[in-house]
Each structure stands twice: as C-alpha cells, then as structure tokens.
Measured scan of single mutants.
Amino acid sequence: SEFSSRSGYGEYVQQTLQPGMRVRMLDDYEEISAGDEGEFRQSNNGIPPVQVFWQSTGRTYWVHWHMLEILGP
C-alpha cells in the first residue's frame, strides 16, 4: 500500500470523495459488511463522520473514512 497508516489513507479518502461518488466498504462495521457498495452523501464533524447510502440496507448509515474504497463517480 502507498499509505503508511490508516489515518493517512483516511485523509486521502476524505480529500477525494465528492457527493454522489460510489464507494465499497473495506471492513465489517455494525450493520454494514465488507464488500457492501453505496453512494457517498455527506460528511460532518461527528463520529463516525461519513454518511453513505448503502444498497444492501436501502438507507444511509454513518461510517469512518478509512473503511471506504472509492469506486468512482
């Protein structure tokens, strides 16, 4: 990996993601499973900070930056 740390990767995702971009989950996290795909909606200063609309659940759920792989527009 070109990223030395999880936080470095998270910063990359945070700087790159734009609303509407497709993402894939890298880790299991509460209701969301690794491999689930969705659409980035928004972020804020909460914890976790990233709101994604997940195809698997049909609704939005908040996750962490480093848990997401960017699939593209």
Rank of each mutant, 00 (worst) to 15 (best):
W65H: 05
D27Y: 14
F3R: 10
G10W: 03
S4W: 15
E69R: 05
L26S: 01
R24V: 02
N44A: 14
G72E: 06
T16A: 15
F3E: 10
I47A: 12
F40V: 13
R22C: 03
P49Y: 06
S5G: 11
V50T: 11
Q18Y: 08
S7A: 07
M25F: 01
R6W: 15
A34M: 14
V52C: 15
S5H: 10
V13D: 07
E31W: 08
R59W: 01
G20F: 04
V13Y: 01
V52P: 10
W65Q: 03
S7V: 06
D27V: 14
H64L: 01
I70D: 03
G10P: 09
S5K: 15
N44G: 15
Y12I: 11
S5Q: 02
V63E: 00
Q14G: 06
F40T: 05
M25H: 00
R41P: 01
D28W: 00
R22K: 10
L26H: 00
D36V: 03
R22W: 11
V52G: 03
N45M: 08
L26M: 13
D36N: 04
S5C: 09
E69V: 00
F3C: 13
M21Y: 05
Y29D: 02
H64G: 06
Q18D: 07
N44Q: 15
L68F: 06
E2T: 08
S7F: 04
G35R: 02
D28S: 06
W54H: 06
Q18K: 13
N45G: 08
F53G: 03
R59H: 14
D27F: 14
S4P: 10
F3V: 09
G38P: 09
Y9Q: 13
R41F: 07
W54K: 03
G72V: 07
G10I: 12
E11H: 07
L26W: 06
G38S: 09
I47V: 14
R41M: 14
N45L: 09
G8M: 14
E37N: 02
G10S: 10
E37A: 01
S43C: 06
S4V: 12
R22Y: 03
H64P: 12
N45S: 12
P73W: 09
Y29L: 02
L17S: 06
S7C: 09
N45C: 13
N44D: 14
Q51K: 12
P48A: 13
Y12T: 14
L17D: 07
V52Q: 06
E30D: 10
S4T: 11
P48E: 04
S5F: 14
T60H: 08
E69G: 05
W54C: 07
I32P: 02
T60V: 11
R59P: 00
Y12F: 10
A34I: 08
L71W: 03
H64Y: 10
F53L: 14
G10E: 07
Y12G: 08
T57R: 08
V52Y: 01
L17C: 02
T60S: 13
V23S: 01
P19L: 11
Q55W: 14
E37G: 06
W65A: 04
Q15M: 12
R22N: 03
S7N: 14
V50W: 06
H66E: 06
R24N: 02
L68V: 05
L26N: 15
Q51F: 05
Q55N: 10
F3T: 11
W54G: 03
N45Q: 12
R24K: 03
R59V: 06
E2Q: 06
L68R: 01
N44V: 15
E2I: 15
V23Q: 02
Q14E: 09
N45P: 06
Y9M: 10
S7E: 07
E39A: 04
